[in-house]
């Protein structure tokens, strides 16, 4: 019986070691998508704060964090174009590896010129449909957060 307990403890321990080792591995990054479709300035500011806190808690190297904006949510990057506080926060997050993805349907529907109207958006940041992107990312194992 003692032997059995010792064996179980060892098995549990090795399991624990295994997972923590895997966690450091690139493939075991925590994957998370933040969904933003509101243009409420307070909410947007809080969302950027949430994301920074998230990075502080998990560590930027252990995290693949995407922000998907569509509809009124695209205003986040409009604000960042004009408001230095927002701009600082967004570029800070980008430096820590956060991807900001913009919905192409929204760009077309709202006639937004991403080069001039939005802060620091390049072609690779644009996804065909923001809502579909949320579904696709979840199917790839991303957790969903709506601030």
């Amino acid at each position: 019986m003692k032997k059995l307990i010792a064996l179980s403890v060892m098995a549990l321990l090795s399991l624990g070691l295994g997972t923590s080792a895997a966690y450091a591995d690139d493939h075991a990054k925590q994957k998370v998508v933040y969904h933003i479709n509101s243009d409420d300035e307070k909410l947007l500011k809080a969302a950027l704060g949430n994301i920074q806190n998230h990075i502080n808690a998990v560590g930027k190297d252990n995290l693949d964090l995407r922000v998907v904006m569509h509809g009124p949510g695209v205003d986040l990057l409009k604000l960042a174009n004009k408001n230095p506080d927002f701009q600082d926060k967004v570029s800070n997050l980008k430096r820590q590896g956060v991807h900001f993805n913009v919905c192409n349907n929204t760009l077309v529907g709202r006639k937004i010129d991403y080069k001039n109207d939005l802060y620091d958006v390049s072609k690779e940041d644009i996804v065909p449909s923001g809502v579909a992107e949320l579904a696709i990312l979840q199917s790839q194992g991303f957790s969903y957060v709506k601030p």
Binding site: N37, H70, G71, N105, P128, S129, V131, A132, A135
Partner: peptide, 10 residues
């Protein structure tokens, strides 16, 4: 609007 745009995407 979102539901419709998703259905159209698919």
């Amino acid at each position: 609007d979102d539901v419709e745009s998703l259905m159209q995407y698919y």
